[in-house]
Amino acid sequence: MIKARVTVTLKNGVLDPQGKAIEGALGALGFDGVGHVRQGKVFDVELEGADKAKAESDLKAMCEKLLANTVIENYNIFVD
Rank of each mutant, 00 (worst) to 15 (best):
T9Q: 10
Q39D: 15
A25K: 11
F31H: 11
D16M: 04
L26K: 01
K52V: 09
L26H: 10
G13D: 04
V37G: 01
V6E: 00
V6K: 00
N74H: 04
V71T: 07
V71A: 06
A28T: 08
V8M: 01
G19S: 02
L67P: 07
R5P: 09
D16W: 14
T9M: 13
K54E: 12
A61G: 04
K54W: 13
V8T: 08
G49D: 05
Q18I: 13
A21M: 11
K3F: 14
D58E: 07
K41R: 15
K60T: 09
L29M: 14
V34D: 02
A50M: 14
D51H: 15
E73I: 12
G40C: 06
E73F: 10
C63G: 04
R5D: 06
K65A: 02
G24V: 15
A53T: 12
M62W: 03
S57F: 14
I72A: 00
K54F: 15
Q39S: 10
E64L: 15
F43Y: 10
M1W: 15
A55V: 09
A28L: 03
E48G: 10
V6R: 00
L67I: 10
T70C: 06
D58Y: 12
A61H: 14
A68T: 05
L47I: 05
D16A: 02
D80K: 08
T7W: 04
N12H: 13
N69K: 05
D58G: 10
R5F: 13
L67F: 05
D80H: 11
R5A: 03
V37I: 09
I2R: 07
L26T: 04
D16P: 08
V45F: 04
E48A: 05
G33D: 01
A68N: 04
G35C: 14
G35N: 08
G49Y: 13
K20Q: 15
D80M: 07
N74C: 03
K20V: 08
E64M: 14
L47A: 05
H36M: 09
R38L: 05
G24I: 12
G30S: 07
I72Y: 09
Q39M: 11
L29Y: 14
V6A: 00
Q39V: 15
L10D: 02
G40N: 03
D80I: 13
G33I: 08
V8K: 01
N69Y: 08
D32F: 12
N69W: 10
A21G: 08
